[in-house]
């Protein structure tokens, strides 16, 4: 672990309440300089709320939030010079040209006039928008809009970048390009916060914070998190019919958990060797055809399913 001098964000006991609803519940974590920290979780997990608090857009109800050495709870304005933020919804001006948007934000961030021109050109080439400087922003395709928004958020060379679901609604090709840009940023020492609900994207992060219902469920590098599932083993089952197989497996002895993944099942068992023998026989006996059953490596999604399941078990049931 890097030493404290390299901490760029430290969150301790953060609580955010909207009326009687607790959106963020006792969340603590730190982020280090140049790190890509991913926030993973379903909609409503509290990812966006945490990011907005870190940007000083929402006031924390409890706890301390230090971003780039600034106490955000006490001085939300003080943090603005140090951060770049891309909100979930595209939020540049559609009725402005590409270059007008960039010039506007360069002005708002107080980028020196002498260097603003260079920064704007860099942002345009980063977004791959050369030759489209005078296009109306509203006419751009989704991927370009996202990259332009990123370019805008980087004009003042922030130390920390907050990206709230930056790739939602963007085609896979553009998502790939976007992540290349994010890696480029982190290579230059920018700390990047990314929230996403794409599990595959989580693998690109240095470290992950798994959130569910306002709480941090787990935290660590992708391999560390996958390791959490290693209690027991994970099997991939292809069965016919799938629904019946799921019902049978969920109640079976030796099966910790079963969940649908695409057109097959992920089954977490205590003992792989035994299960590989007993499960097919049991399924066949109840009239379910077991096409294949083999051990697999746990993905982050499995981790999430497991951890979120444990959390709701603690809280008493999957739904309140």
């Amino acid at each position: 672990m890097p030493n404290d001098g390299n901490i760029s964000v430290r969150v301790d006991g953060l609580v955010k309440r909207f009326g009687s609803f607790t959106a963020v519940d006792r969340v603590s974590f730190s982020a280090y300089r140049g790190e890509i920290l991913g926030f993973l979780g379903p909609n409503g997990a509290g990812k966006s709320t945490v990011i907005r608090i870190l940007c000083g857009l929402l006031r924390p109800s409890e706890g301390s939030v230090i971003v780039a050495g600034v106490d955000v709870g006490k001085d939300p304005e003080g943090v603005r010079h140090h951060i770049g933020y891309m909100s979930q919804k595209f939020s540049l001006y559609n009725d402005l040209e590409v270059s007008e948007n960039l010039r506007f934000f360069a002005g708002l961030y107080g980028v020196d006039r002498g260097i603003a021109g260079d920064r704007i050109r860099e942002a345009i080439s980063l977004a791959g928008l050369q030759g489209h400087e005078h296009d109306l922003t509203g006419t751009l395709a989704g991927g370009w809009k996202q990259r332009l928004a990123l370019g805008c958020a980087l004009l003042h060379r922030p130390e920390i970048l907050f990206l709230d679901e930056p790739t939602s609604g963007v085609d896979p090709m553009s998502r790939r390009q976007f992540w290349d840009l994010i890696h480029g940023m982190s290579g230059r020492g920018v700390t990047v916060f990314v929230s996403t609900h794409y599990m595959d994207e989580a693998e690109y992060c240095d470290r992950l914070v798994l959130m569910n219902r306002g709480r941090v469920v787990a935290m660590g590098t992708p391999p560390e998190l996958r390791h959490l599932v290693k209690k027991g083993a994970l099997l991939l089952a292809k069965c016919e019919p799938l629904g019946t197989a799921l019902q049978i497996l969920q109640g079976s002895p030796g099966v910790a958990e079963a969940a649908v993944f695409g057109n097959s099942l992920h089954v977490r068992v205590e003992q792989a060797e035994d299960a590989l023998v007993t499960l097919p026989a049991m399924l066949e006996s109840r009239g379910v055809k077991c096409v294949s059953l083999k051990p697999i490596e746990a993905s982050l999604e499995d981790v999430f399913v497991q951890l979120a399941g444990e959390q709701s078990a603690v809280r008493g049931g999957p739904d309140r």
């Binding site: 603005r80 891309m86 939020s91 540049l92 001006y93 934000f105 708002l108 107080g110």
Partner: peptide, 14 residues
């Protein structure tokens, strides 16, 4: 309405 406010708020403008 257009969702541009959030971006505006995240900048240092007073």
């Amino acid at each position: 309405e257009r969702g541009t406010m959030e971006q505006l708020l995240s900048t240092p403008i007073t």
